[in-house]
Design a protein around this nucleic acid. Sequence first.
DNA 1: TTAGGGTTAG
Length: 492
Amino acid sequence: MLILANRLSSLRPTKPLLRPISYNYKLTTTTSPSSPPQDATIVNLVLKTDSQTLTRTLEKYPVEWTPDLVDRILKLLWNHGPKALQFFKSLDYQPTYAHVSSSFDHAIDIAGRLRDYKTLWTLVDRMRTRRLGPNPKTFAIITERYVSAGKPDRAIKIFFSMHEHGCVQDLNSFNTLLDVLCKSKRVEMADNKLFKVFRGRFRADTVSYNIMANGWCLIKRTPKALEVLKEMVKRGLNPTMTTYNILVKGFFRAGQLKEAWEFFLQMKKRKCEIDVVTYTTVVHGFGVAGEVRKAQRVFNEMIGEGVLPSVATYNAFIQVLCKKDNVENAISVFEEMLRKGYMPNSTTYNVVIRGLCHVGRMEKAMEFMARMKDDECEPNVQIYNVVIRYFCDAGEIEKGLNVFEKMGDADCLPNLDTYNILISAMFVRKKSDDLLTAGKLLIEMVERGFLPQKFTFNRVLDGLLLTGNQDFAKEILRLQSRCGRLPRRLKL
DNA sequence: TTAGGGTTAG
């Protein structure tokens, strides 16, 4: 209770509003156990060292490089792609260290995300020269990157060239590509260009059919999913619980509540061993459609049928109560789950905190933020962003900024969204001080490797000029040109 | 990293 009182009292406005930049790179992943402090130091070092001196700096750095360490650093540098690739390359020059295939995969993933295909293929070649691959996982990464860059045809070509890179094409890699295409809602392309043509050659199995059924469900074309089901039976493949669960979810997604319920009843009638995933899907499906009582009945029924709810089931039900019923009831279920010995996870907290923010119960939301830590799940950047956004929307800008400061204490790094939310909030009160804060935030985000939009720069510049902060505006203008965001012509 | 359920705003 005392801790809570302290937390709440620290929400009062304090100055300075921004924590010192030295907090910058206390990096951890927020949902998994904290990474060793040494990782943060290395990441910090990589971020602030220029590419020319990085190799030497790393050489002198007193640490024994191991594949695990390198993979962790690459993961932490995920939002700083070019820096991550420089780090990878610099280590490659170290005489005492050789990259392993998982690090190559990470680097290839990062290059793909940057759409730097030249680097990507150079890395693939190097991987092959060193007999480290490329392996099917490498190609799963590459094709996924091409598909998400809007180049699905290229991804398919790459799949068929796998063997030229010394990697076998098998049913697994075929299924992986089908899945990548389906998940990006390109099920028609997956069907016409791959599945129909090559299912014989790769001996499509239950997994292939499930992937295709799910693909149709994702774009709400449940009749096509039913066709897939029919066809797999015709070919002598038995549908599994996964197949049925895909269809139930598909009906709900398509808004076919009646069909979902009938399908569920059919499953029961045919003595399917309905599992916790089916029940969770049905509870969530009815709930988000506004049928809370029906969701509640199914939730109660599953226990009667001897299927224990999982944390995911509770999360689904709690979310439904938050959205379509009321937060009080959601909190009762939350407490009930604790009494039954379940350990809430970050999703559980996420939905409860969101629910509380949504009805303006910010103090209670902050209380749950504090509780998270007791349950060993640190709030992640998304949940911080939600709380900051709601505080700012309610005009409680200082409280929003205070939560932002707390992220630093909690080793949770702000992301691009965090900065955009806060900077936008600095314009609502039309106060000169707020504009100064906006400017400081803009400088801080650039120092942390985020590239603000041109719009953000112009907005802050206009604000500073209107509030008579000409000198600060000049500083921001210089920053903007350093970032390569060409400034407009401004009269200063 | 071969398939199904729970977070994400308007």
